[in-house]
Design a protein around this nucleic acid. Sequence first.
DNA 1: CGCCGCTATCGATGGTTGTCAATATCGACT
DNA 2: AGTCGATATTGACAACCATCGATAGCGGCG
Lengths: 116, 116
Amino acid sequence: MTTTLELTDVSASACCAPLVREPLTAAEAEQLATTMKALADPARLRLLSIVAASENAEACVCDLIEPIGLSQPTVSHHLKVLTNAGFLTRSKRGTWAYFALVPGALDRISQLLVAS
Amino acid sequence: MTTTLELTDVSASACCAPLVREPLTAAEAEQLATTMKALADPARLRLLSIVAASENAEACVCDLIEPIGLSQPTVSHHLKVLTNAGFLTRSKRGTWAYFALVPGALDRISQLLVAS
DNA sequence: CGCCGCTATCGATGGTTGTCAATATCGACT
DNA sequence: AGTCGATATTGACAACCATCGATAGCGGCG
């Protein structure tokens, strides 16, 4: 299993000097790439946007399978990737598993790309 | 060869309604994922940051090979991917090929991720 | 013209990944 | 206990991709 990514580490070591300010070290680039790889998939982007647009920015797996149009194991896999990357949290209530947006997670990588 | 990505199309069709506002369509997700896949690679992220930190946000291929630590064909390949994705432009002056940042390209995808 | 240096393309290869069917797990309810 | 429904895990397979060596194209320069 991949370790949980520390987005804050990237922004800390590269604080006030994001991607466009000065060259990334190999380690920083590796970490940022791993995080972005979690986003660079159409199914995962759609999952994120569906969760974000849901009530309380939270959705049950059962509500995600149909709109995505993929098999249940595949959806479960993508949700795991997004969770490991720090974009979603998983909370099981009864039989159902609810995935919720991690506040600020998307904003963090967004700020790493922007120039200002 | 992959077609040049139209980042403006994404931001246009998703204007004022980014990733977190309402569910992405399959086509939007596909396009955004393709663009992000170009970024989700450590070598390409480092190339971008080196170019961005150079004079005039522009760098020669010969100046990029050594700091990246990859073979010349591999570097050339990554630069092509970034160019096709709309993040770099290529201009050949004499024997040398100079790659420059496309202004606003990174900011565009950055704004697609952020909530506000 | 002929050589040389810079860059791009080609072909091959090993590794990664998205996907599914099958199966396991686990909670709820009877 | 036993069944059922929801979710996660496993195993397998095809597609994709990053990388390199070899080679081709192409200016500059002697």
